[in-house]
Design a protein around this nucleic acid. Structure first.
Length: 668
DNA sequence: TTGCGATCCATTTTT
DNA sequence: TGGATCGCAA
């Protein structure tokens, strides 16, 4: 891509000569293109590849930018880096032991964090205090990411952001318990040398703020930052960047209308403050859409216009006219899934459209399940982005827990999971055993103690020993863990085991590529998406794409299928309960989904949702009133009814739905 | 006191 | 599909 191929707006951004720049780029206006052009422009100007850092929020997009950049530029670009905030900070910690001397530490993921909270809460905690460990973890994470105090976080996560006197009173009551548990959790992390996801960013951000020389030194190895999806940056990440925008140049690209990470502390408004917060900075806009036809943009624009907020976005299609979006009404999810598969098959025939130009988008992972099943049935290759990854599934975590114990015998959370796999060992017995071994220096000492315990399954010790012997060959170590745990896992997962065990083979393949057990473990913790998309009959070259909307940012496809656009989900009843901010985030979610389509957009909407309305259920009632597609002008779309459904859509707005009206629907 | 199986329940989104 | 919960068994 050369500068001549850019439009004037893009070119102006890519060749910006000032220090810091924010590019406000609407959906499909060539965001990635501009980042790549910027990178090439800088490289041509003589900036060394190693002094350029590309930051994104997901590994996928970071990798993609780098791949596109490398394939389109001549010269040695191997030193180019594309990283996530997390992997980058991890590297900073590892490469600067003088600044961050944590010694040997273990990174824990979200699930481990919850287990840790459960552990420090103690067994009867929940009964006495009515707090879920999950909630604790979320509130804590919000404090760190949004850089706010505990009361604010509680107000946000528990009371829909309210701060009236009554709410204040309630928060005040809860405060001591939260404070106590969070303190314990932090002590636990320090004692066991754990870092959670948020710590990785926080330690670096604070460390650099406090230590000028360290900041000078680390910032000294970069000249230019290129940051994608800036609208998703939260206060913690801003703090981190603060140490760099005075020392390096930062070039950020984002779109406030696509900010959908509020739950992680990102505030879509923060991007508006960019010129105020970032010194020596400027803002430029990209407004011409190259992705979609005007019909698709008309509908997307309309959705955004209905918002009480002014996003000031009206995208115009450079490509001109095309087909109107289709809204499909269905009764059963199954009909929807079959319809999607049918359309995909048709697209192959008539339009010579490859599979990969078909993308199915869903709010939640679960919404993709039925489509996945139908694709398997039809033997169509597909990949899943987002979703429960291989590495997050229970049986894989079981195997990994054994590896973790071997890699670090002080990993209490891993010990607990591992020990509880065996019969007659539960939470309490495990805790007693852990008490005896957790202070030991080496695995051998631990094993010795376990062997000395009477009545204990000898497999507990021998399995660990076998893994230890094969430690240097990760795939064989996994194989050993598999052999040792086969019996207990087969019991634990019963008839499901034959399906699950296949995943372990996949795990071995990933392991075979790793240098060491520790490298394998930290890789997989920082990249939980590792292994996603490998399941199923995927063809790496050409597969249908199934993705959550959150994972779909930056993606596009000729044909997009948007599933379950029901009023219980857009906005979701949960968002309604959480007030306007949450509702707006859901609207942006829908907007992101709509704007992925290049040629054809098919929106699926269920009659089934109507049955949910119970006159006594105010949320259900609100949901029907707030539904984003209410009053959508008929000129903007076509309607189709599928699965033998001829019933008119729209009766959900009459509130008088009797039970008999619902009986013909699928209640499953 | 601890573990386990049956049963019911709700279920966003990511590093 | 997993989880929480409860009653029963070891």
């Amino acid at each position: 891509m050369n500068l001549e191929e850019l439009n004037p707006q893009q070119r102006e951004a890519a060749t910006y000569e000032g220090r810091n720049l924010l590019v406000l780029a609407g959906a499909g206006t060539g965001k990635t293109r501009t980042i790549i052009a910027r990178a090439k422009y800088l490289l041509n100007k003589g900036v060394r590849p190693s002094r350029l850092l590309i930051l994104s929020f997901t590994r996928k997009s970071a990798r993609e930018i780098v791949a596109r950049l490398q394939s389109s530029s001549q010269g040695d670009t191997r030193a180019l880096k594309g990283q996530t905030f997390h992997s980058w900070c991890m590297e900073i910690i590892e490469q600067n032991p003088g600044v961050f001397n944590f010694g040997k530490f273990t990174v824990i993921d979200e699930e481990d964090r919850e287990s840790a909270f459960r552990l420090v809460c103690g067994r009867h905690f929940k009964k006495n205090n009515f707090i879920e460990p999950k909630q604790l973890a979320e509130v804590y994470s919000y404090v760190v990411n949004a850089r706010c105090n505990l009361s604010t976080a509680l107000s946000h996560r528990l009371f829909n952001g309210r701060m009236d006197d009554e709410t204040k009173e309630k928060i005040l009551q809860k405060l001591p318990v939260y404070q106590e548990v969070i303190k314990k959790y932090m002590a636990f992390k320090a004692e066991r040398r754990y870092l959670d996801y948020d710590d990785i960013l926080q330690k670096v951000a604070l460390g650099l703020k406090r230590n000028r020389e360290a900041a000078d030194f680390i910032a000294g190895s970069f000249d230019h930052f290129l940051i994608d999806e800036m609208q998703d940056t939260n206060p913690l990440q801003y703090l981190l960047l603060e140490s760099f925008w005075t020392r390096c140049n930062i070039f950020c690209v984002g779109d406030d209308a696509q900010s959908i990470y509020g739950f992680r502390g990102a505030d879509f408004k923060s991007i508006h403050y960019f010129p105020l917060v970032v010194p020596d900075s400027n803002v430029k806009k990209l407004t011409i859409n190259y992705r979609s036809t005007q019909e698709i943009l008309d509908l997307s624009n309309w959705v955004l216009e209905q918002s009480p907020l002014n996003y000031d976005k009206k995208l115009t299609a450079n490509r001109g006219k095309g087909l109107k979006p289709v809204i499909c009404h269905f009764h059963q999810e199954w009909d929807m899934a079959r319809d999607i598969v049918m359309r995909i098959k048709n697209s192959q025939g008539e339009e010579k459209c490859p599979f990969k130009e078909n993308m199915v988008l869903s709010r939640s992972n679960r919404g993709l399940k039925s489509v996945e099943a139908c694709l398997i049935e039809a033997q169509i290759p597909y990949v899943v982005y987002g979703g429960t990854s291989l590495m997050a599934s229970a049986h894989v975590r079981d195997i990994v827990s054994a590896l973790r114990v071997v890699a670090n015998p002080r990993d209490e959370l891993a010990w607990e999971r591992y020990l509880c796999l065996f019969p007659r060992i539960g939470e309490i017995t495990a805790a007693k055993l852990i008490d005896k071994i957790i202070d030991k220096e080496t695995l051998e000492e631990c094993i010795e103690i376990l062997e000395g315990e009477k009545g204990l399954d000898p497999d507990i010790a021998t399995t660990l020993q076998n893994i230890k012997m094969l430690e240097i060959e990760v795939n064989r170590a996994i194989e050993a863990a598999m052999r040792g745990l086969q019996k207990v896992l087969a019991h634990k997962y019963k008839d499901d085991w034959n399906r699950r065990r296949k995943d372990i083979g996949l795990l071995e393949k990933i392991g075979a590529a790793s240098e060491s057990l520790t490298a394998f473990l930290s890789d997989y913790i920082l990249d939980p998406s590792l292994g996603t998309g490998l399941k199923g009959e995927a063809d790496p070259e050409d597969s249908v794409i199934l993705t959550t909307i959150h994972s779909a940012k930056g993606l596009e496809a000729r044909n997009c299928y948007l599933v379950n656009v029901n009023f219980t989900q857009y906005p979701s009843s949960k968002a309604i309960a959480n007030g306007e901010d949450a509702i707006e985030e859901d609207r942006r979610c829908l907007y992101v989904a709509l704007t992925r389509a290049k040629d054809k957009l098919t929106i699926y909407r269920s009659h089934k949702a109507a049955q949910v309305i119970d006159p006594s259920d105010m949320l259900g009632f609100e949901a029907s009133k707030l539904y984003f597609l209410n009053d959508l002008p008929e000129s903007l779309y076509e309607v189709e009814n599928i699965g033998g459904s001829s019933r008119e859509w729209g009766f959900y707005r009459g509130d008088s739905i009797s039970l008999s009206d619902c009986e013909e629907f699928d209640f499953s």
